[in-house]
């Protein structure tokens, strides 16, 4: 049970275990609450489901905004972003961590959000393509470089490519074309925009000071 949510449905009494060592998370059907800011994105409450163990409350940040919400323990971060928070920039291309279309940053690192249990986001911070730059602000240098080098076609893998590319530069893995190719190989582009992607990252790495 999370400290933030002393829920009446706490089932940790079922297990005679030391609460200092384990947090049995779960319970409490509160839908989604976006805490700490007035305007919310159109968050869809998770469905009213009777089984209490199927709802667990988590607190995390998305694009700098604190969020408290109820999730199905089985839900991936990707599905929570897309289906409950209407952050549809991250895409589902395989749902098994094999394509990179779902790439977001968690605590500053790129991950496959489809293989990240949402439950594991407690206390963590996610950054998605929507949060890379302010909605009305200028583009991130990586976004601009993707346009300049036409590093995209259908655009479906593009948010994942860009989130991976930004991480690639931040990690210091953009020092040569060969290194970029290797460190961008977790993001499949079926349209085959790889040449443009590599050129864009080389370009943006300079702007980003990478």
């Amino acid at each position: 049970m999370s400290e933030h949510d002393p829920s009446p449905h706490d089932r940790s009494h079922d297990l005679s275990i030391n609460r200092r060592d384990v947090m049995l998370v779960g319970v409490a059907m509160t839908g989604v609450t976006l805490v700490g800011f007035g305007e919310t994105t159109a968050a869809t409450p998770s469905a009213p489901v009777a089984r209490p163990e199927m709802n667990l409350t988590i607190h995390f940040q998305v694009n700098g905004r604190p969020i408290e919400m109820s999730v199905d323990p089985r839900a991936s971060l990707l599905d929570v972003l897309r289906e409950q928070l209407d952050l549809t920039g991250a895409k589902k291309g395989c749902d098994h961590g094999q394509c990179g279309a779902c790439t977001v940053h968690v605590d500053g690192r790129r991950v496959a959000s489809c293989l990240t249990l949402a439950a594991k986001m407690e206390g963590r911070a996610a950054l998605t393509i929507e949060g890379l730059t302010p909605a009305d602000g200028p583009l991130h240098p990586m976004q601009q470089a993707f346009i300049d080098h036409d590093a995209l076609q259908c655009g479906y893998c593009t948010p994942g490519q860009i989130m991976a590319a930004v991480a690639c530069v931040q990690e210091g893995h953009a020092s040569s074309e060969a290194e970029i190719r290797e460190y961008m190989s977790g993001n499949i582009c079926r349209c085959g925009a790889y040449v443009g992607i590599v050129a864009a990252i080389r370009d943006a790495a300079v702007t980003m000071g990478g």
Partner: peptide, 21 residues
């Protein structure tokens, strides 16, 4: 010229079918 829909695509705001609210 740049791809006309590139700006939306790099910002992740292009809505594909499964993205429709």
């Amino acid at each position: 010229r740049a791809r006309v829909d590139a700006r939306d695509k790099v910002r992740g705001v292009t809505r594909f079918a499964a993205d429709m609210p």
